[in-house]
Amino acid sequence: MSNGRIVHLSERVPEVSADEMVRALVPPRQFNEARFETYRPDDEYPSQAEALLAAQRFSGQKVAAAATGGRSFFDRFKPQPAVKPGLYLDGGFGVGKTHLLASIWHAYPGRKYFGTFIEYTALIGALGFSETVRTLRGTKLIAIDEFELDDPGDTMMMSKLLGELVETGTNVAATSNTPPNALGEGRFAAQDFLREITKLADVFQTIRIDGTDYRRRTIAGHAEVTPPSALEREVDARVSAGQIVAHDHFGTLIRHLARVHPSKYVRLVAGIDALALDDVYELTDQADALRFVAFIDRIYDAQVPVTASGTALDEIFGGGMLEGGYRKKYLRCVSRLIASTAAAAESRP
């Protein structure tokens, strides 16, 4: 007998304690096995191999002379660049930044934490700044995925937190996204990061990673739209196959997300095998759109395939949002939505 069933995310009211938030600061499950050895640099983009070497050095690993590009016996004796306590990986979507960040985390000895920028700011909100410093003090590594520069208040709060931790011996590795079609292709992102973290700028080595999205789906692609009748049949088939399917009306979910703190979205989507959304429509409210981006980040981390009817999910950010200040977030979300709907098509029972 099938143990599959339908659940509604709009009916879930998750609670997450501060202790649970700390314990959850580990890489997403798709990066459980991420290691330097499994990172495959694209030969067309030498910066990927250079980033791999920088990440290995940052983790304290010795790098063979051949791997550093040495072309003679004497090259192996050339002094290597000093390893700074901070490493910042700057690049577009799908070039392996999170894989390298997770590899650093796995290779690093001692107490360590891995989380998104929003998870760390949520922890500060739950514990308070002083208690967060006390909780994280003595940590060997803080890994921050998707460091955000959109909110000056949150950015400066994180800068202050990291400053307190670096002073007591903690090392920091971070990633952030640069849109693939951004003017200057990434140069501005690294400069913005260093400017916004002010006093910490000197402790970071910034590494640019060029390349194309490993998913081979660009933002010019499209998220698959499923007709309502076909969506119902897919939900039924997944349930019959023993899957737990979250089936919600898009508008109802958007309203519910406003009542749940983004730090709890990871618990909101826990245990589901697939997501089905009815009647998707264009979002014109910035707050709704940003909450949906945070939600999709958790869906993507959990590797949940998404099926949707209505407007194509890669076309929901309206009102000039893709040209505004949160452009990076929306483009990252579009890339993930395309991948998630493609995953649904590939995994249909």
Rank of each mutant, 00 (worst) to 15 (best):
A308I: 08
A287H: 12
G310L: 02
Y326K: 11
D278I: 07
D273M: 04
R332L: 08
A270F: 03
N3W: 04
R187V: 12
T155C: 15
F77N: 13
C333R: 04
S263R: 09
F292S: 01
R348H: 12
L25K: 05
Q80C: 05
A220Y: 12
L322G: 03
G115N: 01
T212E: 14
V63W: 02
L322I: 14
A201P: 06
R348Q: 13
E50Y: 06
A342R: 14
G163F: 00
Y300N: 12
A339S: 11
T175V: 12
A289N: 03
R12G: 04
I296R: 00
S103M: 08
A64Q: 11
A302N: 13
R238M: 07
K112D: 03
V13S: 14
K84F: 01
R238W: 07
V334Y: 02
H261W: 03
G115T: 06
S347V: 00
F114Q: 10
Q61D: 03
E146L: 12
S47R: 02
E33S: 15
K112Q: 10
A302G: 08
F193N: 06
S103C: 13
E315G: 01
P28M: 02
G91V: 03
F292K: 02
T341R: 05
R134L: 13
P227N: 09
A51T: 08
D278P: 00
Y39M: 03
F58W: 11
S17E: 03
V95W: 05
F93Q: 04
D151V: 11
E185C: 03
V203A: 06
A230D: 15
S229C: 03
R336Y: 05
F204E: 12
R23Q: 14
A201F: 00
D279R: 15
G163T: 06
H8L: 09
T307F: 13
P41Y: 05
F73R: 15
S59H: 08
V63M: 04
H249T: 12
T311A: 07
E164N: 13
I142D: 00
I6T: 14
G271Q: 10
L136G: 07
T311H: 04
E119L: 09
